[in-house]
Design a protein around this nucleic acid. Structure first.
Lengths: 224, 224, 224, 224
DNA sequence: TAATAATCGAGACGGTACGTCGCGTCTTCTG
DNA sequence: CAGAAGACGCGACGTACCGTCTCGATTATTA
């Protein structure tokens, strides 16, 4: 009866994209299942702290655990560290996908940029994502996850809109979709990230789109 | 156990921009003067570590001191913490101002953007500023200093170029200089920061400038 | 998050001396009965670990459970903690009572002391009781149980032997039985516990008994 | 200036027997010296806790640090763990060497045993050494140190006394000094350790010595 | 030529957080 | 019900840095 398990079976953290296993029950699920409520308490605790203005540097795992009334191990059981936890937090805060008006490519682009502007605004208001975003490049896994979950889907939508623009004749054939996408997205990003002392004007999205469509040489007044 | 802490006078750190006191000797300067060599050793030590690929998170003051063969107090005597030290490092690494060709506004813009592209490239190559930039928003003083020293001067130059473009008739009168500036800068920033998996094409600066000048509706082929 | 802890009825553990309820079934005994095999597996697992040289400090309940391939709760269902479990282990390892030759008080004493010597030897050989004994005083219930089960019975036997010695004229009337008992037992104990670097000579029991009987002033040579 | 020390120089803890280096200054003593006061505060804190009746199991390093108002690292800087710290505590509590009357071997033996009896008493009174001693065998370094510092010196004194007894004719020539020593020491040890429910009689030392000298067959009344 | 004073490397100091482990209790599913 | 499995709140482990504080030794200026 010498069963002493040596390899404690590598800890399995939740896969970023799938909170609950889809359908085919992979393992029979032995032992007491992890509490959903605890999961929520932790993530919500982090959000509360961030909204209270606590700087990200002071967001120790120990403090998070204390706030949520939870043992440290319970956090480490789910996420391998701050990074992975923040991915969860980020996901839980992301606004739902914008619904495109579909009236014209131009209007769709304005809508997408407006969504970006709103995210920029909320980053400043709540102090929240401001810092999470700021640190993201230091936390490579978080960066990757954010790309996968947030950035890439939006980008794909914008590419689709632009491709439709080419098909509808709103853009010339042979347009570099990637570059076009970055031409309209870049300025909004710059305003959000680098100019955090200035407000983001209400009609900024429209301004950028119209200027990008018409070109500097012509100016936005040439729009139909 | 010697509990009575005497409140010492606040330590005075060097002002960021002036390594040596200007001229009028404020204090008679008694005692052993600070060693220039030590100053250099610390900053160079940080640069070496960053170039060796050490993540910024592992750049503890203790490790920096060890690397430079220097006491911790010697660092704190000069800078109040990591933030202020990094400002110094940042300044010591910035490439010299680009010299504008002056042949046309378009060429000047391309030149400025090319400078930005090169910075983006070096951030990736050396792993260096990559992380420093990434963390910068978490370190507000570093962020401010970087703005003051690096971003703002470049921005002022670009604004000047654009204003000259309006004066020369290359741009329509009434052009929003700020917005125009961001329209060309934004895309390059986006490529540098958000697309760190893709290369920055040799002629990217020209591509962006030409597309921004002509506008999406027209496409870059309309250039002279 | 389910904070209201309900005060459950105190768990009832088995009485140390009676592994199975005597006869009159106190409770109707509903549900699945406790497995004897499990009981054995746990105790044997502990013994194995101890004999493998695992220090008592590293004998966590968690590890014991792992070794025996048993859930932690299953252990706590039987014993209230390490202490009570160790009593069980101790009992399962004690050598059977020595049989006295009865030829003389002196020979009986030697026999009893030889038993003690053997226990001392086995403590060293198997690394086993060595540590259990060592920690016993920290675990008061274990200490008490050990007294009750092991020490006291032996002591009573020795007292009996000595009393017979007085009756038979081998010892003077008015001999302090307690003190006499300790005079012969003490040295062997000391050698076993305090001199674990030295061997326990084959004839040590005889040496001690003879010296104690004759007295230091006379020396053991005076024996018949 | 690539000095980065890799091997942090193995931590040196104090040698058990020599609190301060004898004379020849081995190393020039660089950096801030360790505070004597802190050392004292820690050891005294442990003693206080033990005397307050805190069980040894609850004597975590963390609690000791808290009690002494000291950082954990400060403790680990001096001792490698609980074991070595307890050696210090033990030494700080040991009564000074007994002064032998020298009137006779018998009186010297009584004096030595009386010293042992007093230690036994203090172990019970203060709850102190009781547990420390109990755990000692689990903590091998502590056990070794206790031997070296406390047991062995006393034993050597007793052996000396006995040898003098042989020389003076109080004991027969050819007496086994080791065995004789254990014959008188053993019973006192047994009473101290194994019979912690009974008091240690005032004249127990004399009783044991006299009985051991005269022998059980004769009884203590035969003494001069 | 001293006396004075700030600097230097080194490292002790009280803290806080790290990520792990064991405690004893609980909650799930399977026999 | 018992049993294996493992989640749970808790608290200690030993380590790493934080920013401050002594140390002895060094290096200028001032008297």
């Amino acid at each position: 009866m010498d069963t002493e398990r040596v390899e404690r079976q590598a800890r399995r953290h939740r896969t970023p994209g799938s909170p609950t296993p889809p359908a085919g029950s992979e393992t029979p699920a032995r032992g007491r299942p992890r509490s959903e409520a605890v999961e929520q308490a932790i993530v919500e605790g982090v959000v509360e702290l961030l909204e209270k203005g606590v700087p990200l540097t002071e967001l120790s795992i120990e403090r998070i655990a204390r706030t949520a009334g939870v043992g440290k191990a319970t956090i480490y059981r789910r996420w391998s560290g701050k990074e992975e936890l923040f991915v969860e937090v980020l996901r839980s805060m992301e606004a739902p996908d914008p619904e495109l008006p579909g009236t014209s490519m131009r209007d769709d682009l304005v809508c997408l940029l407006e969504h970006l502007r709103r995210r920029g605004l909320s980053m400043r208001r709540s102090v929240l994502l401001h810092n999470v975003f700021a640190q993201m490049k230091t936390l490579p896994r978080l960066w990757d996850a954010y790309h996968e979950i947030v950035i890439d889907p939006r980008r794909r939508v914008m590419h689709e809109v632009l491709r439709r623009g080419v098909a509808d004749g709103e853009l010339p054939a042979g347009t570099d979709i990637e570059l076009a996408s970055d031409l309209v997205t870049g300025p909004m990003l710059l305003r959000s990230i680098m100019r955090d002392d200035q407000p983001l004007a209400e009609d900024l999205a429209a301004q950028i789109v119209d200027l990008a469509l018409a070109g500097l040489r012509t100016g936005p007044d040439s729009r139909m």
